[in-house]
């Protein structure tokens, strides 16, 4: 058997994947890219219009709001999940009692869908029945928890729900990192008399950087593609205050029947992901 022939089963095993990558991913990408340069509406056409779709896209209020929102959401959501997730992982790593129970609780919401999360938090934010009403009922009558009904705050309600849902996953990944730290590092810091909290701030994050990076990449992918949560919780409202790019694409596809706009917006999303996620990740891997 020639070496080439011996490796044939590997190629055969991978054929479905290769087929999928080439046909679906490759074809889909090219098709979307091409369509974004045409004047396609309900049906795709080949009427080349240059960058007109992109010009319209960036002139659109909805798209501008969507871009600002996804940036704001992304920063707060990723930052919040990482910070809270790290704090929880550290807390779980202190040899506490009931560690399994606490970990299960923190990880529980990660098993839910964004649809479920959205419905629950919409209910909690409901001004007439939700937390606001309950707290007022207890006597604090000026208490406000109506973020979903106000344009300036609705996006923060989404962030809160997102953090509730996604923190657990980040926590588990970082906990795995903490468990891998050399015990001698802890001994050394104890001899030096450095308080544990300072070690957790100054020393440990750098040591579990790969885990933090993994968590950050997963979270940023979630943030950029965020769609279900918005649809269920706010539907993009009040007004257009919680529009996001993924929803813009979907609306253009299925409600406005504007293929040109949808594909242009999708292409921009793809570019943004390549720049924001792919590039640092590739650099990180190279550095290793």
């Amino acid at each position: 058997m020639t070496p080439r022939l011996r490796k044939l089963p590997a190629v055969i095993a991978m054929t479905p994947t290769i087929f999928f990558v080439v046909v679906v991913i490759g074809f889909g990408l090219l098709w979307t890219l091409w369509t974004s340069f045409t004047s396609s509406k309900l049906l795709p056409n080949n009427d080349f219009v240059g960058l007109a779709q992109y010009a319209r896209l960036f002139a659109s209020d909805n798209w501008q709001v969507a871009c600002v929102n996804v940036a704001l959401f992304g920063v707060l959501f990723i930052g919040g999940c990482l910070a809270l997730g790290y704090a929880l992982a550290v807390a779980l790593d202190q040899g506490i009692r009931f560690e399994d129970a606490f970990r299960t609780i923190f990880l529980m919401s990660a098993s839910l869908s964004f649809v479920v999360t959205g419905i629950v938090w919409q209910w909690l934010f409901d001004p007439t029945f939700g937390i606001q009403a309950a707290v007022r009922d207890w006597g604090w009558t000026s208490f406000r928890f109506d973020w979903l009904t106000r344009e300036e705050t609705a996006i923060f309600a989404l962030v809160g729900a997102g953090i509730w849902q996604a923190t657990g996953m980040g926590m588990v990944i970082m906990l795995a990192g903490l468990r891998g730290i050399d015990q001698d590092i802890w001994n050394a810091t104890r001899i030096d008399g450095i308080p544990a909290w300072r070690v957790y701030i100054h020393v440990i994050p750098a040591m579990i950087r790969p885990m933090i990076a993994t968590a950050a990449v997963l979270l940023s992918l979630t943030a950029i593609k965020i769609y279900d949560l918005v649809v269920v919780m706010t539907g993009g409202g009040p007004g257009i205050s919680t529009e996001v790019p993924a929803k813009y694409v979907m609306d253009m596809l299925f409600q406005r029947n504007n293929l040109g706009q949808a594909t242009a917006a999708a292409t921009i999303m793809l570019l943004a992901i390549c720049l924001l996620v792919g590039l640092p990740w590739a650099l990180l891997r190279r550095a290793k």
């Binding site: 991913i25 990408l29 795709p44 950029i224 993924a246 596809l253 992901i273």
Partner: peptide
């Protein structure tokens, strides 16, 4: 990394 929206249509 590619957003699913790119492929839907």
């Amino acid at each position: 990394f590619v957003p699913i929206q790119v492929f839907i249509f």
